[in-house]
């Protein structure tokens, strides 16, 4: 991307734009969490029909938390993508940290969903009419694996010298 160099009116944007590793990671973690929530909604609620929309055993506070969380996920998806676009346009995105953040978000949400939503708030279970243990284990282990990948990527990103995508 050499567009900025060809435009004499705008000074080279690299000079003042330095990668923001923490912001890149946080923004992509937000996108990751919201994406995982969307996948959960689409795959397990809609396609497989494993989760129940509302299984009636949910306490009121769980219902309230669920409503808030669900809306926050929707808004998080939009906010995450627009913040990501902003990082790119300013040339402050650090791709390595962004990748790490994405996995941390994916795994973090999966684990949160598996423990807080399914077990603590008891919003719904993974599947009904089956022995839940293997499902719960698979669910939470998957979350841990994703978190682990994110952690490894984060450590690697921290060691490598900072490089940012050039601003557009």
């Amino acid at each position: 991307m050499t567009g900025s160099a060809r435009r004499p009116a705008s000074p080279p944007s690299h000079s003042d734009a330095r990668p923001l590793p923490r912001r890149s990671m946080a923004v992509c973690a937000l996108i990751g969490a919201a994406l995982m929530a969307a996948v959960d909604e689409i795959v397990f609620h809609q396609i497989l029909n494993w989760h129940h929309f509302y299984d009636r055993s949910t306490p009121a506070v769980g219902l309230l938390a669920d409503g808030l969380l669900h809306t926050a996920e929707l808004l998080g998806l939009v906010v995450g993508f627009v913040l990501y676009a902003d990082l790119r346009r300013r040339g402050t995105l650090s791709p390595a940290h962004a990748r790490a953040g994405l996995f941390l978000g994916l795994g973090g949400f999966q684990l949160f969903d598996g423990i807080v939503d399914h077990k603590v708030l008891r919003l719904h279970q993974i599947r009904y009419g089956v022995d839940l243990l293997p499902y719960d284990l698979a669910w939470n282990v998957a979350g841990l694996v994703l978190l682990g990948i994110g952690a490894v990527l984060a450590v690697r990103a921290g060691r490598a010298p900072l490089s940012a995508e050039p601003a557009r």
């Binding site: 929309f53 509302y54 009636r56 219902l63 309230l64 669920d66 409503g67 808030l68 669900h70 809306t71 926050a72 929707l74 808004l75």
Partner: peptide, 21 residues
């Protein structure tokens, strides 16, 4: 504006879900 959207969305979702029961 964003907070109001969040609050309204949550209240709407809770109400919708409560109709299930």
């Amino acid at each position: 504006r964003g907070t109001a959207l969040l609050g309204a969305g949550a209240a709407h979702a809770v109400l919708a879900k409560s109709f299930w029961a």
